[in-house]
Design a protein around this nucleic acid. Structure first.
Lengths: 116, 116
DNA sequence: ACAACGTATCCGGAAATGCGGATACGTACA
DNA sequence: TGTACGTATCCGCATTTCCGGATACGTTGT
């Protein structure tokens, strides 16, 4: 019942692929602010309802979100805070690269006096 | 020159999609042990050379790895340790879920005496 | 200049993924 | 039971992704 090595690798990749789409990243960040139902996400992210629902199913299947029925609504929430932590780590890497990059571009277009 | 919000989201997703394939995850973990050339990765991961090369190009394009020509070889290495940290965070989430899950299954198949 | 080696790219085809309107399902309340 | 609302799934289509053998490119040493 305990998955073998290759199986874990597959599941690991599946978990990662859950966060590999811009809309899903947006959904995850929205859910990190507060648990929400589908309609809220739909209006907040300005996406068709079917699109949101489809992405939520993917996030469910890869175990990134939990959900709970509440009357006619379904409330979704992040299944684990570390998911956002992982996203933040990667975003930091990205932001640093961007700011380094734009600083370099600035230096090219308007080189300041060099420090000796 | 500084990318706008939506653009960053796209880049963020692109960075994430770099880690959303089992072979690429394997490559990243291998590189986290030590910088390597393509041939080494090919034999270590038992993948066709073209496959390794293709994945490395993807990893390059999303900025997850750096490379350097050394004679006829090309040495690849992780561009940032935080990439592995992010992978580890997600793997932890996965492992916990797996062990919880298999513990539950055990309890079903052979329920122990309940603690009062 | 040529052979050997390491790497990157090309190519054609299979499989997966995203989209969003239309539709089906489930729940609540009259 | 019927109507409204919230959500999930269906469907056809376009796009992307992955694969790996074949081939091209670049470097080294003779």
């Amino acid at each position: 019942m305990i998955p073998r090595r290759a199986e874990i690798a597959r599941m690991h990749a599946e978990l990662c692929s859950g966060i590999s789409d811009p809309n899903r990243i947006a959904i995850l960040y929205a859910l990190s602010e507060r648990p929400s139902n589908v309609t809220y996400l739909t209006t907040r992210l300005r996406l068709p309802q079917s699109t949101v629902s489809r992405h939520l199913r993917i996030l469910r299947n890869s175990g990134l979100v939990r959900f709970e029925r509440r009357g006619r609504e379904v409330i979704y929430e992040l299944s684990d805070e570390r998911i956002i932590q992982a996203l933040e780590l990667l975003r930091d890497v990205l932001n640093e690269r961007i700011s380094t990059h734009s600083r370099l571009l600035e230096q090219i277009s308007s080189p300041a006096k060099e420090a000796s």
